[in-house]
């Protein structure tokens, strides 16, 4: 048991444990929805963390991929008559393709330039989703048909809680595998110093592109789930504020920490619900808490706490 907990699969064990344990203390189905939202956002945040925390590349347009995934499961069944489950994969494929094509030129940029280029990309997706009203329903959004798996309609917060938890576990396992592979180490080398990585024979451009594509797929699947859970989507899902929210989740939880991604998503999904009691001051309270976290736990919640505990450990 101890070896299991100390192994690199700790975050995976934690996800499975938390997902199984939480329903025991849920007082109403509303909590299943919050749980499902946390898991879905965590999935997108893990993908983005691979890009930001491991490869050191920032993306301010990641909600664009969330949007592609979400609209894939809306447009596919509605306009093309495709089954929803297939559209989740189709959306992921489309996101991967878009990321591959867009990534070629923009990943050559560094720092602020990369941030601005990804920002522009995200805005473009949001504008397309808003203006192509014939397909997307325009600014008022469109409804999403229910997912049917093997004749079983996946419906309601409870069902989605389990689907999202299962997918998140798979997502965590894949991400941990990637980090521990030669590719993962190459990515961390890029993060630390691109020049050094290049000298060591890492094919920097290719690795960066690869991780960009992977992070896009994570976001796309999360977007599809979110759309199917809600049953109705609007273009603000792909908007700039959503991209910022994803980045905030990564940074708050801790860059380069898979476990941090889960915590970051958890905190930023649950806090607004917990703070409704503050009425007119909830946004201020939310801002202050996030600021407090960043000032006191500078490297993100999980890495800072982890280091503190490791330092104190005998």
């Amino acid at each position: 048991m101890a070896r299991l907990i100390d192994s690199r699969y700790t975050p995976l064990v934690a996800v499975v444990f938390v997902a199984l344990a939480l329903p025991l203390i849920f007082p109403s189905p509303f909590y299943y929805r919050i749980g499902a939202l946390v898991f879905i956002f965590a999935l997108a945040v893990i993908g983005l963390n691979l890009l930001m925390g491991f490869a050191g590349q920032v993306s301010l347009g990641h909600a664009g991929f969330l949007g592609i995934g979400a609209y894939a499961v809306a447009i596919g069944p509605t306009h093309l008559g495709l089954p929803s489950w297939f559209c989740i994969f189709a959306g992921a494929g489309a996101s991967a393709l878009v990321a591959y094509v867009v990534g070629q030129p923009i990943l050559r940029l560094k720092g602020h330039y990369l941030a601005v280029a990804t920002l522009g990309f995200g805005l473009m997706i949001a504008i397309v989703l808003t203006n192509e009203a014939g397909w997307t329903g325009g600014p008022d959004g469109m409804s999403v048909p229910r997912l049917v798996l093997f004749g079983w309609p996946v419906h309601g917060s409870k069902a989605w809680y389990w689907v999202a938890a299962g997918t998140l576990a798979v997502g965590v396992a894949l991400a941990l595998n990637l980090i521990d592979s030669p590719s993962g180490r190459a990515l961390q080398a890029i993060h630390d110093s691109e020049v050094a990585a290049l000298v060591l024979g890492v094919r920097v451009a290719r690795k960066k592109l690869g991780v960009f594509v992977i992070s896009a797929v994570y976001a796309s699947v999360a977007g599809s789930y979110l759309a199917l859970l809600n049953g109705h989507i609007t273009p603000d899902l792909a908007g700039f504020m959503r991209s910022i929210e994803l980045v905030a989740m990564v940074v708050l939880g801790g860059m380069g920490s898979i476990f941090g991604s889960l915590v970051g998503a958890g905190v930023l999904v649950v806090l607004p619900q917990a703070l409704t009691g503050f009425h007119d001051y909830e946004h201020m309270a939310l801002g202050l808490i996030v600021m407090g976290f960043m000032i006191l736990l500078r490297r993100g919640i999980v890495p800072t706490l982890g280091a503190a505990l490791a330092g104190r450990a005998p």
């Binding site: 100390d6 938390v18 939480l22 909590y31 915590v263 009691g277 706490l305 450990a313």
Partner: peptide, 23 residues
């Protein structure tokens, strides 16, 4: 590492429980 996880898990559950407090 293990202790950290316990703390984080407890914090998460605490936050969830808090959402019910307003009613």
């Amino acid at each position: 590492m293990r202790r950290m996880q316990q703390i984080v898990a407890a914090a998460g559950i605490g936050l969830l429980a808090l959402t019910g407090a307003g009613y």
